[in-house]
């Protein structure tokens, strides 16, 4: 592990860049960002450093929508940060994606609506689904930086794809992922991070 020094005062920044892209110098407080190479990649599934979060692999958790056991996870990087997608099984053994990004948690399952767009709609545009108008609130590219556990589909390290998020104001999020002309759509409710708990 390569160590870094503060560019302002020269103090040792330690191994803080191991999992964070942004580090404050302990000595003078100056922030440092790691540009370009986001996370070191080692091996074929990437190195997933433990980050603080509410959801952890193989630790069942209770939501207002039932209890889920995360059996697999994928980490994607976007813009300045990263988010985790957990493949979690409910009490009936049926799987759902739970995406966790700094307290924003969404529970989604694939939707089979054939009328949803096959190419990424523009930010701010409206798409029709489930008799509602969905406004695209986010359209970005993400890169897969690691995965582990049991997953319902194959992921490729460093694969870059476009994703969009759309909402209609009823507490659900509609997400589309676009890989080389193929679109996959997911839909489901936001979960309140304050309402997650451990079973029992």
């Amino acid at each position: 592990m390569e160590r870094r020094n503060c560019l302002k005062c020269g103090a040792d920044l330690g191994e803080s860049f191991r999992w964070a892209r942004m580090v404050n110098c302990d000595h003078c407080g100056t922030a440092h960002v790691l540009r370009d190479a986001v996370f070191t990649v080692a091996g074929s599934s990437g190195v997933l450093h433990e980050t603080p979060g509410l959801v952890h692999m193989l630790q069942p958790f209770v939501t207002p929508k039932g209890t889920f056991d995360p059996v697999g996870m994928v980490r994607f990087s976007y813009g300045r940060g990263a988010w985790d997608e957990f493949w979690a099984l409910d009490e009936a053994g049926s799987g759902a994606w739970i995406s966790v990004d700094e307290g924003d948690i969404v529970l989604q399952r694939p939707t089979s609506d054939k009328d949803l767009p096959h190419f990424p709609p523009a930010l701010g545009s409206t798409i029709g689904h489930d008799s509602e108008d969905w406004t695209v609130t986010e359209a970005e590219t993400a890169r897969c930086i690691g995965f582990r556990g049991q997953l319902p589909e194959a992921f490729e390290l460093d694969e870059v794809f476009t994703f969009v998020n759309a909402s209609c104001g009823d507490g659900r999020l509609l997400s589309g992922e676009f890989h080389a002309g193929a679109a996959t759509w997911f839909i489901g409710p936001w979960l309140d991070s304050f309402e997650l708990g451990r079973p029992g």
């Binding site: 592990m1 390569e2 870094r4 503060c6 560019l7 302002k8 920044l13 860049f17 942004m22 580090v23 404050n24 110098c25 003078c28 407080g29 100056t30 922030a31 440092h32 960002v33 790691l34 540009r35 370009d36 190479a37 986001v38 070191t40």
Partner: peptide, 20 residues
């Protein structure tokens, strides 16, 4: 680890910024 580390400082006054 590859990549370039840059200190974040205010482009206006040059003061070091904290990223919390």
């Amino acid at each position: 680890m590859r990549g370039e580390v840059a200190a974040v400082s205010c482009p206006s006054c040059g003061a070091g910024l904290m990223a919390l």
